[in-house]
Write a protein that binds this DNA or RNA. Structure first.
Lengths: 347, 347
DNA sequence: TTGTAAGCGTTATCAA
DNA sequence: TTGATAACGCTTACAA
């Protein structure tokens, strides 16, 4: 805020044009300018410009009870998946005159609750939740009547409008791709069980394995503790020990796939020669890894912009009743981490 | 903001305890609680908690003329360099009770000016500028008396407190490393000339080349148009055409190095066998590229946290007079993109 | 130690 | 079409 308390107010503009501040307010606000004489509007606008008047959004917020701020909750902004999404959010909200507060939960459910409460305390007009917890721990109650949309979360016990991607389709693309190039022993490094995305992909995996005519075995799935490289590596270790015959692995996201890469490197298992790997998300730079990662690309930026449009629409039509769910479609990005299996089974 | 206008105010708390809102305000504010009877404070705090009272920061802002918001200007949040820095900013500001608005200039100087003005209009208390333009286009005037610190910018004609890294030292580390493993023909893919960082590294390069006893030639430096992979590739093309004898390239940042990687791939030049490459920044994932990138690591998170501490200190001691410059030290991270040159010169 | 009153800069309501 | 007045919820003199 300006140190020197020289900030120009409506009153100053009013004084200059010899009118009341109310009129100035009306003239300067596009919503109400039509109530004012056209010439007066012009006069006032000019005067405002000449004084470099900038309306004080804080005063406006206090009066209107609209902060024009949206809270954005992500696990960690450093995860490139979320920085893409956040750019989509920022650009869309900006264009609508809204700003956003971005907070990081670091995967901590308690922190998430605290942060949501802190955003409420800051009087955000709405919330975009990009955390993917399955258990909502009374989220509905924490939110109260605060408009919110969720990304990647299709929680059973909470009723939020959402923007998600078609997990079934994405998983089908991955499994079908691997099967079509000859793989019969396909495993899955699943996301955490507390994550709805992780669960959905794991369920879809089982379904798709059967759909292509392969036999599904429980032992072909290993769940990771988090959506991270480290967790991916840890789970990969277990999976590879248990199922040495697998020729391909579908990792529930790119970071988990990179964890698998690390474990493969340690075991001197060559990808894709000895093992094919498919990731999920297509985060930046995975096209430059060694080998470049075949993955399921999701429209990250669009997820952010769609979520923003959704929350904005909820702010105008205050009808919370209509529960929109937007589902975007992922696509397969074939690179060099997948190839035909070395030895075809039963040949 | 709460749709239902049920938000609890100081008055409500005051009514409950049978005291005046002023007293409640004082009791609830740690700064002024000492003015209130201890028992009263306890009573009021309990009452506030029982009503779930949350002070309205907007009303507070209006009165105190402190928004408790800081503007953060970056070229693009998606650049992993800046997301690291921003996390450092967020964590530090959060702890001090501040929030931040992050805006992206996308490298557009006009957009930068617009965004800074928009942040001023939003009444931020201070600014962290992570854009690295050399020409400041009357930045001082645009800022007015708004406290600001700059990151990576050591502009000659603007006087802002700053957090930078020791470019000379970083460059020395790169050049010395290459020289020490036998390179005599070292080139530089420099950052844009409009960037102070780019200029500093280019100057330091020339100095260090001479310092190790090599002859400096103008033709060994090619400037990139931007800090991007694409610009890096374009400049690499020109450089490689012009100086086919170079055995090592010091790229002014990691993205430019990746652009060079791309050009090398097209020409079937093997790194590091045919050409060694050093990057700058050590952004995430460059340790996983093919080959993993030798680079100068800068303390990204700390840059953000130091910049935040600086701006926070400016907000308390209002003395803008003391002009602090914090300089952090980079370090060399040796990976697989550098090795001894194939054929040593004159052997 | 507590209360009174005023004001931060808007906008909403009413009246002219 | 314009103006007067009050109010949003807080903090800060000043008074008691």
């Amino acid at each position: 805020m300006n140190n020197e308390d020289k900030s120009v107010t409506l009153k100053d503009v009013a004084k200059l044009v010899g009118m009341h501040q109310t009129t100035v307010s009306r003239a300067l606000n596009p919503q109400t300018a039509h109530l004012v004489n056209e010439d007066t509007v012009k006069l006032i606008r000019d005067a405002a410009k000449s004084l470099n008047f900038e309306p004080n959004p804080i005063a406006s917020s206090l009066r209107t009870k609209k902060s024009m701020n949206i809270g954005v909750v992500v696990p960690d902004l450093r995860n490139p998946l979320f920085t893409e999404i956040v750019r989509g959010v920022q650009d869309t909200l900006d264009a609508a005159g809204y700003s956003c507060f971005i907070v990081n939960t670091d995967g901590d459910i308690n922190k998430e609750v605290k942060l949501i409460n802190s955003l409420k305390a800051r009087r955000v007009d709405g919330l975009i939740l990009a955390t993917a917890r399955q258990q909502s721990h009374g989220l509905d109650q924490i939110l109260g009547d605060l408009p919110a949309v969720s990304i990647n979360r299709t929680s059973p016990n909470t009723h939020l409008p959402s923007v998600t991607t078609d997990e079934d389709h994405g998983t089908k693309l991955a499994v079908t791709h691997l099967y079509s190039i000859g793989h019969k022993e396909i495993a899955h490094l699943a996301g955490p069980t507390w994550s709805s995305t992780g669960l959905e992909r794991a369920n879809a995996f089982q379904r798709e394995i059967k759909a292509v005519g392969l036999e599904f075995e429980e032992s072909s799935v290993e769940y990771c503790e988090a959506w991270t490289i480290e967790a991916g590596k840890k789970a990969a270790k277990i999976l590879l020990d248990r199922s040495p015959d697998v020729t391909a692995v579908f990792a529930a996201n790119d970071l988990i796939a990179l964890g698998l890469y690390d474990e493969l490197a340690e075991r001197k298992i060559k990808c894709p020669r000895d093992l094919s790997v498919v990731g999920y998300n297509d985060i930046p730079f995975v096209d430059r890894m060694d080998p470049s990662l075949t993955t399921i690309r999701i429209p990250k930026y669009e997820i952010g912009s769609e979520a923003s449009r959704l929350i904005l629409s909820m702010l105008v039509e205050k009808s919370n009743s209509f529960m929109r769910h937007i589902r975007l479609t992922p696509e397969l990005k074939i690179r060099h981490s997948t190839s035909a299996p070395k030895k075809l089974a039963h040949v």
